[in-house]
Every structure is written in structure tokens, then in C-alpha cells.
């Protein structure tokens, strides 16, 4: 469904991503692991057209995204859960959610149904629906960003380090929810540092180091991999 070929990304003259190739198939959950500064977020930004100098090919359902504007890309069926809980703090929880579908014409018609679905996955959001988003706890805010991402009824949900800044028990809870979402036939592209939790929900993973993919394996094989065990799992 998503296919990235020969991707090079630059910030000014500095190259951050080198000849990267990857893909996400239909109904598949794919992980991208790597340490800080390895290029995970940049890769996501490149897919979504948020960086200027991109060379190579990003195909989504056969369409090249590199020439498209971000807001058009989001209307193709991709949705982003950004890092750092980028919510709209002075809008209510419900408004934040509704914003997720307001500008995606296909999703807008079924706003109420999607809202029910999201409240079903995250009951706490239903309880706090009229509260200002800025007053939620960290974990609730993260759930709200995931919920907002889902409001666009994406075929591909991209998550940029959803575990950042959450206490371990909340990370486990959140990834449990992601598993439920995956079962609804939403493809997932997950960029994570928390490899241990990430491996529980993905089918296949890439390891990104210094802007290059150094490893591509299925989740089971990654768990067995010596490099992964040593550098990421601390075994």
C-alpha cells in the first residue's frame, strides 16, 4: 500500500536519509526502530510532505506523494499521530476529535460513527468529552491524539513515537489499544524507540540507524536478532 523507493532527504545540505526503501502492505503493522536522531521522524515527515528537499519515490496506493501538498496527502487515506501530543489545548476533547475528520471529506459524513468507535476504544475520552484538551493527563492526551488520527478514517495510521513520555503501565495500555485498532484492518506504521513494546504489535520491522536501514525482519526474527537484543532490548 505504501511504498518508499530510493528516498534521500536533506536538511539544507546535510543528508539525513540515504537511499531508503521500505513498504507497508495492506492490513500490516510495520515498525521503524532506531535511536534518537536516526531519522525516524524525518522519514515520516518526508512521507507526509513536511520537508522540502526530498528525492526519490513515495507511492501510496499507486500515487506518488512527493509532489503533493501535505493537506492533500492527508486526504488520500493517511493519518498522522504526531509526537509530543500536539493537541489544541483550548478546544474541548470532542472538538479536537471532530477536527480530525472535519477536513477529510470522506470521513466527515461518518463523523458520529467514528466518534462512537473511538469512544469504544478509549472510554475515558467519552467521559471527558466536554473538557478542554489542555486539562487532560499525559496519557489521556496521547489517547486523544491517537483518537484524532483515527477520526480521518485512515487506511494507514502513522504513529510517531506514541510511547514518549508515558509511564510504562500506560505504554502497555496504549499498545494494547493499538492492537485493537489494527484488528479493524487499519495498516499501521509505527516509529518507536521502545522496541520491546513495539514488537508486540507489529508484523514486520525495520531498524534505522544514521539514516540508513540496517535490518529488515519479521517481528519474531527481530526478537531473536543478536543486534537487536544487544542494542535495543539490553539482553
Amino acid at each position: 500500500m505504501l511504498e518508499v523507493n530510493n528516498l534521500n532527504v536533506f536538511y539544507d545540505k546535510i543528508q539525513v536519509i540515504w537511499e531508503l526503501a521500505m513498504q507497508v502492505n495492506k492490513k500490516e503493522a510495520v515498525g521503524i526502530f532506531g535511536p534518537n536522531g536516526s531519522g525516524k521522524s524525518t522519514l515520516i515527515k518526508a512521507i507526509l510532505g513536511l520537508v522540502d528537499s526530498v528525492e526519490g519515490e513515495v507511492l501510496f496506493r499507486g500515487q506518488d506523494l512527493t509532489k503533493k501538498k501535505t493537506y492533500n496527502i492527508m486526504r488520500q487515506g493517511i493519518s498522522l499521530v504526531p509526537q509530543n501530543r500536539e493537541l489544541f489545548p483550548d478546544m474541548t476533547v470532542k472538538e479536537n476529535l471532530k477536527l480530525g475528520s472535519a477536513f477529510i471529506s470522506e470521513a466527515r459524513q461518518s463523523t458520529d460513527e467514528t466518534l462512537d468507535f473511538i469512544y469504544h476504544i478509549f472510554p475515558v475520552l467519552k467521559k471527558r468529552e466536554e473538557q478542554l484538551a489542555g486539562t487532560l493527563s499525559g496519557g489521556q492526551q496521547r489517547m486523544l491524539t491517537v483518537g484524532r488520527g483515527l477520526m480521518a478514517k485512515p487506511q494507514l495510521l502513522i504513529l510517531d513515537e506514541p510511547s514518549v513520555g508515558l509511564q510504562p503501565s500506560l505504554v502497555i495500555e496504549l499498545f494494547q489499544k493499538l492492537k485493537e485498532i489494527k484488528e479493524k484492518d487499519v495498516s499501521i506504521l509505527l516509529a518507536e524507540q521502545n522496541v520491546r513494546q513495539g514488537l508486540k504489535i507489529i508484523d514486520r520491522g525495520y531498524v534505522l540507524e544514521n539514516g540508513r536501514i540496517v535490518l529488515e525482519e519479521s517481528a519474531e526474527d527481530l526478537l531473536e536478532n543478536e543486534h537487536i537484543q544487544k542494542s535495543y532490548l539490553g539482553i
Binding site: 513536511l50 492527508m74 498522522l80 504526531p82 489544541f88 489545548p89 471532530k98 477536527l99 472535519a102 477536513f103
Partner: peptide, 18 residues
């Protein structure tokens, strides 16, 4: 929604399809 989100965070606004 559009105006409020642009003021709050432009990148998030763009990635909400605005």
C-alpha cells in the same frame, strides 16, 4: 477548527488535512 488549529500548531493543522 481551521483557524484555531492554525494558530495552535501549523504542522498539526496541515496534517489534519487543512
Amino acid at each position: 477548527y481551521a483557524i484555531n488549529s492554525i494558530r495552535n500548531d501549523e504542522i498539526t493543522a496541515r496534517s489534519s488535512g487543512i
